[in-house]
């Protein structure tokens, strides 16, 4: 078991003929991901990735021909929200959007449509998702992961890798690692991802990595307190971030009302989450939490 994706996931790559799409789709194939189709409007009928993957003009067509149920998006920001909507309207169950820099107004509308259609979206502006040794969807380096029983949930890319690296160092493998993205409007929230990990029999504990800005970590902490039976370790980046400044991610900004690292760490602790003061403690904290 795992969450969201596994070796049976049938994947469409939207933007497969672009440089990012080609590079990462190749890496995904090498990892063992079942990439069954690509979509680039106007390039239907061609073959991508050295003749391994057929290209279609639309997601609808790709889905009809290959029965794919998952899609990953590598298209430029001006077209990313539309790509999400296209996948959702075509009936794709899970859409992962890697693209960084999608306008917020576009995402607010796209979010409303995917909610209406019952599509699950991960991202945008995220590293994607990986179910260890089964399916890699996105840009995460697969080789750093090791099969095991910890779920990883994060707003950030390289910080996810850091957490995975530390877990492996203390002998803890992962079920699934999911980067939900650092934008103000994202598809899958922390609560939704935690819910999936809680329901997964293979996952024994979850590392939650948040950052300054918004209320998502606080909402997740309260949910954990009321619903979660598994061990949760938390870390919040941005203790030294100045207020009012956007720290790289579009959503990482302190603008008032318990959205500082300090406030989030306090609320998480109050809700029974083992909070790491330093990023270097993630692996050890998880190990300690599991032995309690």
């Amino acid at each position: 078991m795992s969450i969201l994706v596994n070796k049976y996931s049938r994947v469409i790559v939207q933007g497969i003929t672009g440089s990012e799409g080609t590079f990462h789709a190749t890496q995904m194939l090498e990892y063992g991901t079942n990439v069954v189709a690509g979509v680039t409007p106007g390039k239907g009928g061609q073959m991508a990735l050295d003749g391994k993957v057929p290209v279609y003009n639309s997601v609808e067509e790709a889905r009809a021909e290959t029965n794919a149920n998952v899609s990953i998006i590598f298209v430029p920001p001006p077209f990313a929200a539309e790509a999400i909507i296209e996948a959702s309207e075509a009936g794709v169950e899970l859409v992962v959007c890697i693209t960084e820099g999608v306008p917020v107004h576009d995402m607010v509308k796209a979010k409303r449509i995917i909610d209406q259609n019952g599509t699950r979206l991960i991202g945008p502006n995220c590293p994607g998702i990986i179910t260890v040794d089964e399916c890699k969807l996105g840009i995460m380096p697969g080789f750093i992961c090791q099969k095991g029983n910890i779920g990883v949930l994060s707003k950030s890319g390289t910080l996810t890798y850091e957490a995975i690296g530390q877990l492996v160092n203390v002998g803890l493998g992962q079920t699934t690692a999911i980067g939900i993205g650092g934008d103000p409007v994202i598809g899958t929230t922390m609560i939704e991802a935690l819910n999936l990990f809680e329901a997964d029999p293979e996952t024994e504990g979850v590392v939650v990595i948040g950052e300054i800005g918004g209320q998502m970590e606080n909402e997740a902490a309260r949910w954990v307190k009321d619903n979660m039976t598994k061990s949760v370790v938390g870390f919040i980046a941005g203790q030294t971030a100045p207020p009012g400044r956007r720290m790289g991610h579009a959503g990482a900004i302190v603008s008032g009302g318990d959205d500082t690292a300090e406030a989030k760490m306090r609320i998480m602790t109050e809700c029974g989450i083992a909070v790491c003061e330093s990023v270097a403690e993630i692996g050890d904290k998880m190990k300690a939490a599991l032995s309690n």
């Binding site: 994060s154 950030s156 890319g157 910080l159 203790q239 030294t240 720290m247 991610h249 990482a252 330093s278």
Partner: peptide, 17 residues
């Protein structure tokens, strides 16, 4: 100097700690 915004913030934080 760090790659990734989250890791960059975490690096600032650990310098302070």
């Amino acid at each position: 100097m760090v790659n990734g915004a989250g890791l960059a913030m975490a690096t600032m934080d650990i310098i302070k700690l």
